[in-house]
Amino acid sequence: MIANYGYKDGSGDFFISIDTDKCDGCGDCVEQCPAGVFEMVENEFDIEDDDELAAVKPDQSRKLKYACGPCKPAAGFEKAELPCVRACEPDAIDHSW
């Protein structure tokens, strides 16, 4: 499943997508994100699955533009070098902007 967290407003699209089929529940993104955007949650989409998944915290998903701002190209980062993207071994995290 591709979970898109974030929003669209007058200034653009700000979504973090997590491929839950790739996410192995390691929790590295939670540790690496300097803004504390991620959390590990129970997989509510599949009640047969007892493993945890990475997700964007609900209160963060409405302000991603600002929460992620310090890691964006304007601050000198390449998209592939974002701490969360780099931390994710199975390559499950992507940003729309």
């Binding site: 499943m1 591709i2 979970a3 898109n4 967290y5 989409f45 409405r62």
Partner: peptide, 12 residues
Amino acid sequence: GKVKAFLMNDKC
């Protein structure tokens, strides 16, 4: 009825 992808906009 299992979710394959989703997007939610609850900011506005």
